[in-house]
Nucleic acid binder design. Structure first.
Length: 419
RNA sequence: GUGAGCGUAGCCCAGCGGUUAAGGCGCCAGGUUGUGGCCCUGGAGAUCGUGGGUUCAAAUCCCACCGUUCACCCCA
């Protein structure tokens, strides 16, 4: 038997209610804040991702789906949402619009890794980006949006962690003192952290090992080493967040792995949960667009994984509005009635009434059972008697009451009752 | 890539060395010659993940592989 490949999954009809719920909340949020939808291809020139994540991590070698197409061009499945948005921003000259340009996306992304709770090879991301302006008010807006998103979903028990990781001027200065600090604990570091010390020092700060966390606690804090401009920016973000009453927690050990990030970083996680529970995160990336070949262009954004959100919704057992069901099920008895039934089904659908037509010449009992299990409000029954009288039997499946209606009046009757 | 747990019908799962592999949900049929939901009766559906080994005997013990779950690495 074939199975969905490792790390992928089918979303069955009954699960779609949940997905639709989340996607609609996302779209509505973006409308509220004036962010417009942008869809990008499922694959890109591999360089779109490779350039932006270059160095420091094994994302490219280990985690990305990279392949050559028949022409030999190197392509990569969409690894995340931000870089393609920036590519589109450059390709279509969106920098010529009044800035900032506010965009959002929602769709699949791919990473080659062993699946674990809420992490899949094909997963789904929702994100929004404000491109072309450095105003800290945008950082605050993006954080507020993220918070409002989870709130509107019914996930209010969240903590927003906030930090600033400086810019190209001040971060190198910080990294020097950070490395100094860790160097003096060299013999106590775990093997991973020894590697991080040279490869990606910022990541030292969120090692999960208890012994390394002790060292991180006493490490110099990056906010203390920000340059003047970054300090002002960071303070302004906090002020604006205060102005719109968004609670946040400063976390000097919150970092990002990649070089293009600047200044604001934030992550959102459920309260009283640690480790792998982050629901979403974002921050400012003032160097990404430059990496892709554009002019230096500041930008800030947020992204979240829908699988994690749905996991949380299910854990909270929130009531998700169910998908609408068809209004009418048409059952028939003999061949003659079947033809009439098909005519009626067709007619009702043209009137905009959703109909399921019985098929398979099952017993009436079987047909009614089916109508019941589909949880349909009305059954329309056509048999010999009804045909003779040019009527149909309309049964209210909830109450069990039924009455005979002339064929010509069915559509009008159903519309009038608007189930 | 590393480590640990788990693989028995569509789903949940009992059985953990002894010969027809149990139950529940769901599905189908009958109890109502044209009527669902509740109830009753019956039925279909399982190469017990795959391959090898131990044994008189393996779903049950051992090994390998595959799958899956969780965690690590990484986290865009």
């Amino acid at each position: 038997m074939y199975k969905a490949p490792r790390g992928t999954f089918d979303i069955l009809p009954q699960e779609h209610a949940c997905w639709k719920y989340v996607e609609e909340k996302a779209a509505f949020l973006c409308r509220l804040y004036g962010y417009q939808p942008l869809s990008t291809p499922i694959f890109e020139d591999a360089q779109v991702f490779a350039k932006t994540v270059a160095g420091g991590t094994d994302i490219i070698d280990k985690e990305m789906y990279i392949f050559k197409d028949k022409s030999g061009q190197e392509l990569a499945l969409r690894a995340e949402g931000t870089a393609p948005v920036c590519r589109a921003y450059l390709e279509h000259g969106l920098f010529n619009l009044p800035q900032p340009v506010k965009l959002y996306y929602i769709g699949p992304a791919f990473r080659y890794e062993r699946p674990q709770s809420g992490r899949y090879r094909q997963h789904h991301q929702f994100g929004f980006e404000a491109l072309g302006e450095a105003d800290p008010a945008l950082d605050a807006e993006v954080i507020e949006m993220a918070q409002q998103f989870f709130y509107s979903l019914g996930l209010p028990q969240l903590t927003i962690h906030l930090n600033s990781i400086g810019c190209k001027l001040c971060r190198p200065r910080y990294l020097v003192v950070l490395k100094q600090h860790y160097s003096s604990y060299m013999d106590q570091l775990c093997p991973d952290c020894k590697a991080r010390l040279v490869k990606n020092p910022l990541r030292l700060l969120d090692c999960k090992k208890v012994s390394c966390q002790e060292i991180a606690k006493t490490a110099p804090k990056i906010p203390d080493y920000l340059c003047h401009e970054c300090q002002i920016h960071f303070q302004s973000v906090q002020e604006y967040l205060g102005a719109v009453s968004i609670p946040f927690q400063l976390n000097p050990r919150l970092v990002r792995g990649l070089d293009y990030y600047t200044r604001t970083v934030f992550e959102i996680e459920p309260r009283e949960a640690g480790g792998q529970s982050t629901l979403g995160g974002g921050g400012r990336y003032d160097h990404l667009i430059e990496e892709l070949g554009g002019r230096p262009t500041p930008a800030v954004g947020f992204a979240t994984g829908l699988e994690r959100i749905i996991l949380n919704l299910k854990n909270q057992r929130l009531d998700i509005p169910p998908l609408p069901k068809p209004d009418v099920f048409i059952a028939y008895l003999e061949q003659e009635a079947k033809i009439e039934a098909m005519k009626i089904a067709s007619e009702l659908r043209r009137e905009g009434i959703p109909v399921i037509m019985a098929t398979g010449d099952k017993s009436l009992k079987g047909q009614m059972r089916q109508a019941n299990s589909l949880d349909i409000a009305y059954a329309l029954i056509l048999g010999e008697q009804e045909l003779l009288q040019r009527t149909a039997m309309l049964r209210d499946m909830r109450s069990g009451e039924q009455k005979s209606i002339p064929l010509t009046e069915i559509a009008g009757f159903l519309k009038q009752f608007k189930m």
